[in-house]
């Protein structure tokens, strides 16, 4: 455990250094924002879960019991909420959203051949709300959600 903590420390230090470099680049160059062609901008810009689902190319989702979301019941720090999504459906993609965020869609994982229905990451949550997982399987969208109580928001500054 202490070893893990040490690694975490050094990682945090690295993060600060990288952040400074990033800021310097931003201030000096003012380079135009790069836009990736495949990046689903409309889904990421969507202001509600429903709109984000539309942005992902679906009209609606069907609740499914075959999706399980592992996230804390109470998140002390909304800036880092660990979320694990697992599904037994033959998933093509798994999207993770936080319903209470200004832009709910946090991440969309496109699973390649052989990839199992499992992703784990950490997301930000501005306030208490639902973590929604949207799984695309056989051209249809299935969803599940889990409520997470956030005691300190992660989107303020």
């Amino acid at each position: 455990m202490s070893d893990m903590n040490m690694k975490r420390r050094s990682l945090l230090k690295g993060a600060m250094a990288a952040g400074t470099v990033g800021l310097a680049v931003g201030a000096g160059l003012l380079s135009p924002r790069m836009v990736l062609a495949a990046w689903p901008k409309s889904a990421f810009d969507a202001k509600s879960v429903e709109d984000a689902v539309k942005g992902l190319g679906g009209s609606g989702t069907e609740a499914s019991g075959d999706i399980s979301i592992k996230a804390p019941d109470i998140a002390e720090n909304g800036a880092v909420v660990p979320v694990t999504v697992e599904t037994t459906l033959p998933a093509e993609s798994i999207a993770v959203m936080a319903s209470s965020n200004g832009t709910p869609l946090a991440a969309d994982f496109m699973l390649g051949e052989g990839a199992g229905g499992f992703v784990s990451t950490r997301i930000k949550m501005g306030k208490t709300g639902d973590v929604v997982a949207v799984v695309k399987s056989g051209g249809k969208l299935y969803s599940a959600s889990k409520s997470v109580k956030v005691t300190i928001g992660g989107c303020g500054g």
Binding site: L11, L12, A15, A38, W39, P40, F44, A79, V80, V81, M97, A98, N101, T103, P104, L105, A106, A107, D108, F109, M110, L111, G112, E113, G114, A115, V119, T121, R122, I123, K124, G154
Partner: peptide, 13 residues
């Protein structure tokens, strides 16, 4: 095997 599209909603680091 995996392509992930992320937005600003993913945590720092």
């Amino acid at each position: 095997v995996l392509t992930a599209y992320w937005g600003g909603g993913v945590s720092k680091n």
